[in-house]
Write a protein that binds this DNA or RNA. Structure first.
Lengths: 105, 105
DNA sequence: AAAATCTGGTTTGTATTGCAAACTAGTCTA
DNA sequence: TAGACTAGTTTGCAATACAAACCAGATTTT
């Protein structure tokens, strides 16, 4: 029993809270595996409510992790999301931090 | 591009929020690696404020994940924590869920 | 022995969040 | 042209995370 927390635990305390929220982690991870992802797709696949999804994507946009692309399909508005470089990097180091922290048994 | 979220992402959306909070994850993980852990020890090692630490441990107690042991060392009160069976189980399945969700690259 | 200080926490107040219900803006249908 | 549908945003509220303030008692100082 020492007096210092092991480093992995420290990194957990410093995890990026924007990404740590499960809904946003999923959104970002989905976006990281495709060129561009539509709002509607995220809504149906994640099961998040529109409102909830909207605020999480806004937060990810504000953080600079997601780029929001507004377009029309015919006359119908379609909102899509693209992960940014910053977003990719942040996600990667989030996963890395976690991977290092998980007890390996 | 399908219409179903992969299962790992689903489990992320269902993560135990009591454990997901970084402070509590650290507290619980530390407690899982020792018979009994003192408040003071957690305070100094984690760097959490007393108040913050107090409310997180209360929450873990309410969830049935931690047992709180109140005692005296001489005349000084000492509060210690022991992880419960439920707590151990919850922590284990939290880690498992995460391990399964982490992209393996 | 009174006052001040220290120890070990708990409670309170506040700002931030996560969430869905309600709303907005426009399109399609009867 | 009224009503329903699509695609999202905004609003209101309950729950959090956090530290400042507080409390009970032990110890030290004057």
């Amino acid at each position: 029993m020492t007096d210092t927390l092991n480093p992995e635990m420290q990194t957990i305390l410093e995890l990026d809270r924007v990404i740590h929220e499960p809904a946003r982690l999923v959104i970002l991870t989905v976006c990281s595996s495709a060129e561009e992802v539509e709002f509607k797709f995220l809504e149906t696949t994640t099961g998040l409510s529109k409102g909830n999804l909207s605020s999480h994507t806004s937060k990810l946009e504000q953080a600079g992790y997601l780029e929001v692309v507004k377009a029309f399909r015919g006359k119908i508005p379609v909102t899509s999301f693209k992960i940014t470089k910053t977003g990719k990097a942040a996600l990667a180091s989030y996963w890395t931090a976690l991977r290092d922290a998980i007890p390996n048994t």
